[in-house]
Computed example of a mutant assay.
Amino acid sequence: MKVLCDTREQRPFSFKRFPGTIVERTGLKTGDYSLHGYQDRVAIERKELNDLIQCLMPPNRARFERELCRAQSLECFAVVVEASMDDVRQGRYMSQMRPHSVLQSIAAFSVRYRVPFIWCGSRAGAEYLTFSLLEKFQAEDEKRTGRLEKGTA
């Protein structure tokens, strides 16, 4: 499987624990990760907790909402968070934004843009889930269409 990683991703996943996975750095229009041949259909946005909180506050909020809006055109999009909801509840981040406000913003975005925010608990959990979502998307598409996407196996 060839995973595409956006060139702006500062701490990219290596996917080393997933044999046969090739990672290629490229500019993605939406999200941090996608699949070769599927860039216009699937993307995953990775967020560390502090980055997520910053994206919920001005001036970053408008940019983040534009990304979520663009993602609506994709068949599959998710935000994977390298933290737990309890980390938010306990305020384990560097911001004065109240935990209730953080969670309410995420709930509003989930409904408004029909995008799941998935609490992965850790960086390793987020890498695992990113790989799994991309792998399952590709497998389901191949099952549905009866073809193997060129250059992805």
Rank of each mutant, 00 (worst) to 15 (best):
E24C: 11
C69Q: 15
F117R: 03
A139M: 10
A139D: 11
W119P: 07
P59V: 00
H100M: 13
D51W: 04
E48F: 09
E135Q: 13
T7C: 15
T130M: 02
G20Y: 14
L74P: 01
L133H: 06
D40A: 11
I22H: 10
V102M: 03
S73C: 13
L35T: 01
V80P: 00
D6Y: 03
M1N: 09
G37N: 05
E9H: 00
P58H: 02
R98E: 11
R66S: 10
K47Y: 05
Q96C: 09
S84E: 03
T145M: 10
G27W: 14
E45L: 06
I106T: 12
V79P: 06
S122W: 01
P59N: 07
S73G: 14
A71E: 12
E48Y: 08
E142H: 02
C76E: 15
R61C: 02
G146M: 03
A107N: 12
I53Q: 01
Q10G: 07
F15D: 02
F77D: 01
L134I: 08
D141P: 08
D6I: 03
D141A: 08
Q90V: 08
V81S: 04
P59W: 10
V81H: 00
P58K: 12
S84P: 08
E142D: 00
M57S: 10
P12G: 05
T145Q: 13
V3F: 11
F137G: 00
D51S: 15
K16D: 15
P19M: 14
A62I: 11
L134F: 02
R66N: 12
V81I: 15
V80D: 01
T30H: 11
Y33L: 09
M94I: 12
L134M: 12
R147F: 09
S132F: 09
V79R: 01
V81W: 07
I53W: 07
R66H: 14
Q90F: 11
E67A: 09
K2G: 02
E67M: 12
G27D: 15
T130V: 04
F13W: 03
A78R: 06
Q138W: 08
V79E: 05
R98Y: 15
D32M: 01
A139Y: 10
M94D: 12
E45N: 06
I53M: 06
G27E: 14
F137M: 01
Y38L: 06
A43R: 10
V102Y: 07
C120D: 09
R70D: 13
R70G: 05
F15Q: 01
Q138C: 10
T30P: 05
C55A: 10
V80H: 06
D51R: 09
V102Q: 06
Y33M: 04
I118D: 04
P19A: 12
L52G: 05
P116T: 10
K136F: 11
L56P: 05
Q39A: 11
H100V: 15
Q104A: 14
